[in-house]
Nucleic acid binder design. Sequence first.
DNA 1: TTGCTCCTCACGTCACGTGAGGTGGC
DNA 2: TTGCTCCTCACGTCACGTGAGGTGGC
Lengths: 268, 268
Amino acid sequence: MLRHYDQLGLLKPSQTDKFTGYRYYTIDQLPRLNRILALKALGISLEQIAQLLGRDGQLSAERLRGMLELRQAEIAQEMQEKQRQLLAVEARLRQIEHEGRPPPYEVVFKSAPAMVVASLRRIVPRVDEMGFYCLTLYRQLYAELARLGITPLQPEITLYHAQEYVETDLDTEIAVPVQEKHLRSEPAAAGVTVRELSEAPLVAALVYEGPFAEMPPAVLSLLGHAGSHGYAFAGPLRELHLSGPAHTAEGQEHPAPVVELQIPIQRP
Amino acid sequence: MLRHYDQLGLLKPSQTDKFTGYRYYTIDQLPRLNRILALKALGISLEQIAQLLGRDGQLSAERLRGMLELRQAEIAQEMQEKQRQLLAVEARLRQIEHEGRPPPYEVVFKSAPAMVVASLRRIVPRVDEMGFYCLTLYRQLYAELARLGITPLQPEITLYHAQEYVETDLDTEIAVPVQEKHLRSEPAAAGVTVRELSEAPLVAALVYEGPFAEMPPAVLSLLGHAGSHGYAFAGPLRELHLSGPAHTAEGQEHPAPVVELQIPIQRP
DNA sequence: TTGCTCCTCACGTCACGTGAGGTGGC
DNA sequence: TTGCTCCTCACGTCACGTGAGGTGGC
């Protein structure tokens, strides 16, 4: 430590043996060392300490006060961060206790940009008919887009407009991003709407990989996670098909698609 | 970040262009990235994350739980440290507010070793006679030691046996360390006691530099500091003359001695 | 031809800690 | 002669950030 402080010029030995290089300190260097250690114990950097102490070791009350107030704010920040970490760690531990094993996905918070989509919206009577409805609707949507000469972009997005978790009469919208210019041109297709899907400044999201049939636990986990952090839902659940269209041309469902689930939220 | 993870082998691109070196990732690498980011947000190191995730990205519930519990304990430690720092910063700020400028010394906590001392003990009637008494007593003590052929060691220590801060009838002991062997030999000198000054496992200490006459504020600061941290005093105040004997042979007081003040304390 | 986005080194951050290899005085 | 304590490099820590200098496709 003393070698380090010597190198930094923070505390130089009062004398150095010319032949052996031994560092010799005098008793009256003790106050300066104590001052350095005391400031260091507050978490102040050596560089800042060097600025405070200067060459003579006198510290101005004003500059010290400024630095302490700065440090006070920093510590508050750091404690908040630790607090956040602690809550998150505890939440994960509880999760493991309850479910026996860690979930195969992670919830992250981010924003989702606005985009222009072509979409179809229907009420799906029962949850177990969702697969069939989506297949049909996406096929119909892609056919209409082809007829209109509009190039579909990626990823497909299925939106669930239900305000809460329901298993019947699901208000479902299937959407495909298109170029912005198509927003103005009147779509002459049956039931196809071209609209802007607005930006979501904050969403809780997770990436799920596996069959659609096994997705509900992931949905519940996402909603539960966001809910348990005290957020309020601020829009329909979005299901992004990141690994491409959910269905092949032959009407086969993708066996293990990569899906991003997003729920727009508001800070409580 | 991705370059770094590539280098560590934590998240390698599924494909790297042979000619340009461009890193290409696939959509199904997203879950692994999210897992990495989620664990990192808990303050877990990349090395530990690599151990947890392994090559396949499956994390065992047991190992995760172990690591989370470890991390939980770490965070608790870190928060305690921050809490300590915050209190210390606040204490220093209050000090500046009250006194207008930072004190020229720092209080540190440490232990003080046991040692054998030769000493004289007297009641000093008034605090303003302390200088004269000490001069006389130290002169007498050194004379007796010389007569007995005992080599005085350093540093001189003055002990104040009063249980509280008083200004009259101060129970004062002046002491000089001597070699351990003198503890057994009967001292045939007038009033000189050879005794063990016991170890103090915990003392609050500060190093003061300046005239003896201006030392009282430092003493009050030390006692106040230890007291305000909730410690109980556990022995007489010790005044170590680090820069050598306080008086010259001619009876002059050292103009700006380096003095270490120690107050033995107990955790509350 | 000009931007743009990617690339590869290589060095810096912060406060020391840790060897490797060496030396003077007891 | 042997320990002991000091010395001087030089590299490692941790998770990237920051240039410098260069490149392929629009």
